[in-house]
Design a protein around this nucleic acid. Structure first.
Lengths: 64, 64
DNA sequence: GCTATTTGTCAAGTATATTTTACTTTTTGA
DNA sequence: TCAAAAAGTAAAATATACTTGACAAATAGC
């Protein structure tokens, strides 16, 4: 269950994992793990990522 | 920063904190703390709450 | 008023999100 | 082709989400 929407949104802005990590104040490994689908981030971090990428929670993190 | 949208959505379905907690598999205190705004839940728990209440992530957890 | 249900809150413990360090592999551009 | 940047991954440590148990205050129904 990789998060390809996150990876795609980041690529669309030409940002590296490191740049996104810096923008939201976490480590690069955390961003990598979220994209990989390893574990579930907190809603606070999800919100920060959404704002950094100009997306909504539903666009990046909703699951059916 | 209380989450009144969550409290309201739960009330609209006439569910107690305990019932919502059982529905999503966490303790009553966890639901109470989220409504109170004490700490940030994981996205996984947010998704479970949304589905139990028939709401989206943006409807219950988006912040400007 | 009385009782039961619900909610608010706290302290101590457990589970897990996140960090740090470090190394390898893949991709990119000159 | 080569070097640099980016991405993937892992182990150990730390921060914090979440549990359990317990009790008081508030709310609702009889």
């Amino acid at each position: 269950m990789k998060n390809l929407r996150l990876k795609s949104a980041r690529a669309a802005l030409d940002m590296s994992q490191q740049q996104l990590a810096d923008a939201v104040g976490v480590s690069r490994q955390t961003i990598n793990a979220i994209e990989k689908g390893d574990y579930n981030p907190t809603i606070k971090l999800c919100l920060a990522i959404c704002k950094a990428l100009g997306k909504t929670l539903d666009e990046l993190f909703w699951e059916e």
